[in-house]
Structures are given as C-alpha cells and as structure tokens.
Nucleic acid binder design. Structure first.
Lengths: 239, 239
DNA sequence: AAGACTAGGTGTACGGCGTACACTTGTCAA
DNA sequence: TTGACAAGTGTACGCCGTACACCTAGTCTT
C-alpha cells in the first residue's frame, strides 16, 4: 500500500525540452538528420507527441534559431560604436560556430522571430548611438546582411582536406581551365602545409571582410556628419 | 502507303530539355514545387525517365544553376578593374533576378560546377589584371562572397506589402519592443508611400553595399601597391 | 535478313518524410 | 464522483527521391 513505486516515467515533454533535444540532435548528427520522427525517437516519444509543443517543423526550426540567438553575449557597454559592433558580431559568430547548422537554418527562415528582431534592434541601436542617421543606418543594415549575425554564406566548401597526392593532381588538372583559381589555391595550400588543418583561416577571412566594411562605414559616417544632407541612395563615394 | 503517319510521339528527352523544363517550372511555380515527379509530369513522362538524363535531383539542381550562370553577360573588355567587376556583378545580378529561386539553390550547392568555377576564375582574373596580388585577391573573394554572383541573402523578407491599416497597427505594436527597427521602417514606408511597390529599393541597396566594398578594395589596393609586403592577414586598416 | 546491342522510357515498390485526426490516459478541480 | 483538459498514442494519407527489373525501338554487325 502506501505510495506505489511509480513506473519509471520519463520526464514530461515541454517546448523547452523539445528545442533542447532538437539542437543537440542537430549538433551531433547534422541538420539533415533532424526529422520530427527522429527527434521523437530521441525523446522516447511517438512523433505526433511533438506537435503538442510545437506547431510544426517550421516553428521547431524557429525555436532552434532562438536558442542559438539566445547564446549571443550582450553588447559591451560604453565602447565606441565600431568596437561595440565588432565585438557583438564576433560574439554572434562564436554562437553560430558552436552550432554549424545554424547559419543554414537562419538563411531558410522567412520571418524573423521576436528574439531575432530584438537582436537586430539592438544592433541598429549601436549604429544610431554612434551617430548614424536613420537613413544611413538602414543602408548599413542591408550592406552588412548576414554578417550582422556572424556568418557569410560560402559559395563552395574549400576547407575539404584531401590526400596531398590527389590534391596536387587535381591542381595540375584544373590549372589548364582555371589558372587563376589554381594560383590562389597553390598559395593557400603552401601556407597551410607548414601549419595544420584546412587551407583557409575562416575566422581571419571573416574579420578581414568585417573590418573592411566597418572602415568603409566609418568613412561614410564622417562624410555624413560633415554634410548631413538627406542623402539620396547613391554609391558611397560617387554619391 | 509509303511512309505511315508516325504515331504522335513527343520529342525525345535530353539533359538539355530536362534542364530547360526544370528552370521553367521553377520560374513559374517556385522552387518548392519542383519535384522529380512534377517535372516528369510536365514533360509528359514517367518520373524514372528523368534519371536517364540526370543522375539525381542534386545534379538536376546543379544543371539548373549552370543554366542561370550561362545567362550572365561576358565581362566588358578594356575597362578598369573596378568598373569591369562592377558591371559583371550587376550582370550576374540581372541573371539571378530573372530566376528568383536561383540564389536559394546556389546557396544550397556544396560543390561548384565547372561553369561556376569558370565564372569565379574570370572574376579573379579581373582583380589580378587590376593589380591585386594573389594574396589580396584571395581575401577579396572571401569578402565579396555571394555578392560576386549578384546576390546577398536577406535575413528576413521586408518587402512584403500589406494593408496600410494593419501595417500602422503593427508598427505601433512593435514600437514598444523594437523602437530602432520601427524608426527605420517608418522612414522607408513614408518614402515609399508616394511611389509604389515595396518599401525597399533592393537594387539600390545592393549597389550601395557593392560600391562600399569596391571603394574599400580600391583603398586596399593603393596601400598594397605602396608597400608590397607579404601582408599578414590582418584588418584592412589596423593591419 | 538476323541477331545482338543499346539508349531511352516504363512500372512497381520501398523507405522516408510531415502531419491530420480520432483515440486513450492521467491529473486535478468542483 | 465526475468531467474537463492537457499530454501522449495509433493509424493513415499523400508526398518525396530513387533502386531495380523490364520492355521497346532503333542501330550496327555479320
């Protein structure tokens, strides 16, 4: 009598638990193997059970994005706009790198979640506080694009590592058709041979492009401060 | 008698015909409704027939990308690197805009097709001819990213047009949480109300960002010419 | 003319997917 | 005790990509 030994019940589901499991699954097995059925299995539950906690798969993905966005460190306070923006973007990048699927999923979102909007809002705030006009800030946001969230879509995956022997043959083969590409690839691989790992330092490349943009924005800001005309949207310099 | 009237046979399939049909279908009905089955139906053929001409769906998508890339005008000859690059990129953009699905598909490609490689090679060639070192060109290619092909991923679709009444209510609602976003949206909509169409001039935004980058690259090039040191990959200005 | 070879199109089937819908079960308030 | 409600289940549907065996018509060889 008294209280029976409860049959070993698993913890009840919740939106939170579902999202965390989804993120973990995507982290471990890749976003392609994240299906509602597989996720349910992971949670030891029948697939349809998930639908009591998320409306559908799209909303699941939205929720996963929010988990990642939630991991971005808050902006540093009291810094100049440029360093504040730079730091925040690199913070976002760190969060995204922890979840390799995140950038792909972000790209596929059609509507921004409130959390993403909040992040964007705070980024806009950094520029506005730095003295950018509303107009200019708008253009800036477009120019930065996904870089605001710490990633850029790479058009092809050049970080594949392959057998040096095969690689050299490929290079020789490609050289006839794509001499300029090969010229670059050669240098990259040569530099990398002493070090280790893939041919490209993605982080360095990201920061290079980021700083290039930020420096350009700084110049624009100076221009705007000197002549705060209602700038027509024209090219930065020839405007 | 003589030659009998041949039964009305449809034109035989070919990789070419399959690709053209796929592009047309995606253009008209969106990339989401492009399935092997639907495409086969369009060609009045059983689904498996397609597999005699393309290995699988991935290769079909690769082929579709090539169709689009093939539509990009060749580079203008004899121009300065900056205008040559600018024109070519805007040409690529025109091709992509003709096929709204193309940027999404391009993003999803994991390997570049030879045609894409050829395009990239020719873009690299423009920079090299303009005096960029191999190293710098490499960084430039990363910095330009998908912009080289005339598109940038927009993180959320702000060009949705909706009932002005609903819009104003939304704006008022959002204002509390996202004041900076609303500040921008208001200006954009105000500017657009006189004109027509969506709130944002995407082409202008694209060119703004493109010119911002090209101007930055020009400055880098000057720096490099003056001190052609084997530049360590550091930020453009603080390097 | 006969047979072999082959490229192109067919038919069937499998395993996966997202999810609609009707159901049971456990919990707790009235 | 009842009955409402939230959580989990089971079944089923229509879609997807594609493996595999088959058929068919044309071409090439002898």
């Amino acid at each position: 009598m008294a209280q029976r030994v409860a049959p070993p019940r698993r913890a009840p589901l919740s939106k939170e638990r579902v999202l965390r499991a989804a993120v973990a699954l995507a982290d471990e097995s890749g976003i392609d193997s994240l299906s509602m059925r597989r996720l349910a299995e992971e949670l030891d539950v029948v697939p349809m059970a998930l639908y009591k906690h998320v409306a559908n798969k799209e909303q699941l993905l939205d929720g996963m994005v929010d988990v990642v966005i939630g991991e971005i460190d808050p902006p540093v306070r009291g810094a100049a706009w440029k360093t504040a923006v730079r730091h925040r973007i690199l913070a976002a990048r760190r969060a995204l790198l922890r979840h390799p699927w995140a950038s792909r999923v972000l790209e596929s979102r059609t509507d921004a979640t409130p959390l993403v909007l909040a992040y964007m809002d705070s980024m806009i705030g950094l520029f506005r506080a730095g003295g950018f006009s509303v107009d200019l800030t708008h253009h800036v946001m477009h120019a930065m694009g996904s870089r605001l969230l710490g990633f850029t879509q790479e058009l092809f995956d050049d970080s594949r590592s392959l057998d040096p022997e095969v690689r050299d043959m490929l290079i020789r083969e490609m050289g006839k058709q794509f001499p300029h590409i090969v010229e670059i690839v050669k240098v990259v691989y040569h530099e990398a041979d002493s070090v280790v790992g893939p041919g490209c330092d993605d982080q360095a490349e990201f920061e290079f492009a980021l700083d290039l943009l930020l420096d350009g924005l700084e110049a624009l800001l100076q221009r705007e401060i000197q002549s705060p005309a209602p700038s027509p949207v024209r090219g930065p310099i020839h405007g």
